[in-house]
Simulated assay, not measured.
Amino acid sequence: MPVLSVRHLTRYQYRNPVAFGDHRMMFRPREGCDQRLLSSSLLISPTPSQLRHVQDVFGNWIGIARFQGRSRELSFESRIVLDHTPLPAFGDHPGDVDVYVRGESIAYAEDDLPDLERSIERQHDDPAGDLAAWAQSFVRRSGPTSLQHLLAEMTQAIYADFRYGKRLEHGVQTPLATLERRGGACRDLAMLMIEAVRSLGLAAQFVSGYIHSPSRKPGQKTSVGGGHTHAWLRVYLPSSGWVEFDPTNGIVGNTDLIRVAVARDPRQATPLQGAWAGLPADYLGMEVEVDVTSLEGDQVSVMPSLALAFG
């Protein structure tokens, strides 16, 4: 059961002192049977006049900081330590297979459909059906197709055939642009697969968090997407529930993936957002540092208990 440490620093700098509006943070991981938070600290400078935490409609934890006064710099430094357990992607019974048949709906339980429908709805236009056709290329021409096999194959196809590249612009490329360019940032590749599986009638959601890139043997590729927050997706299967897929790294399951937020739309899972007031020329830039490391036993024993700090 690996114990992972995450340090996430975001710093904004300004030429002259500026005022700050509310800032919303999504730094705290979602706990479950595969990850358990051991400790957490948050250092915000300048000190906010108020900080509160709420849960959104998806159960994500959101910190909301309110500020008074002005400053030339605003920084947020989150540190977390958690137990992270890799689990079988499709549960403990790999013989349970869900199938897709052309022209038929996914066999979701009638009671589940009202809660899944918004995650099945497509969010991007596909006027010529190019994305849907690409998704259908993973389906057998006749007879049932194993959804577990289809989703794993689609994940590996994006990993092998699409080029990953960091993109500093805000927002997400349209899936059609990603399909045409055969590349994009991790959030673009995730959204491509989300819309592709939605075209098949599957419920899919966007996931934001961190990725651990452990040391590899010589010749093995290291995971990409580190140094910043990372993005992938999860798909709901009748026999397995929510299953995670990282097409940027070809990961099927939760291995090395630290889940912080899940949402129907990427805009609902922004790690940090807020407003400031000043002249446009005052803004000098933003820097982000994300470090994810594995801790040994003696390092874990000295970690502080749950704490919140301001500076």
Rank of each mutant, 00 (worst) to 15 (best):
Q156F: 12
I120P: 00
S119V: 08
H124G: 00
Y159C: 13
Y159Q: 14
R140S: 01
M193P: 01
D161C: 09
V81F: 02
E121T: 03
T155E: 00
E195D: 08
G91T: 05
L116I: 02
L168T: 10
A128I: 05
K166S: 09
D125K: 03
H124I: 00
H149S: 13
S146C: 09
T178V: 15
M191L: 04
R163T: 09
H93N: 04
A177S: 15
H149L: 12
G143T: 15
L202Q: 09
I158T: 05
E180R: 11
E104P: 04
G201E: 10
L179M: 13
E180K: 10
L82F: 10
L131F: 15
L200P: 02
S142G: 05
A157D: 15
Y164S: 06
A89G: 11
H170D: 12
H170P: 07
M191Q: 15
L189W: 03
L87K: 06
G171I: 10
H124V: 03
S78Q: 05
V101F: 05
A157L: 04
A160R: 12
P175S: 10
T155W: 07
R140N: 10
Q136P: 00
P114L: 13
L150R: 09
Q123N: 06
R167W: 09
L168C: 03
Q173R: 06
V101Q: 06
E153N: 13
H124E: 11
F138G: 04
E180A: 14
I80D: 01
R122I: 02
L192N: 11
G91C: 13
V99R: 04
E169A: 15
A185R: 07
R79Q: 13
A128L: 14
L176D: 08
G143N: 10
S146K: 08
Q156L: 15
A135R: 07
A135M: 06
L150S: 06
L179Y: 08
Q136T: 08
L147Q: 05
V99K: 00
C186G: 06
E104N: 09
R187G: 03
L189I: 09
L202H: 00
D92T: 08
H84L: 13
Q148Y: 08
I80R: 01
A128P: 00
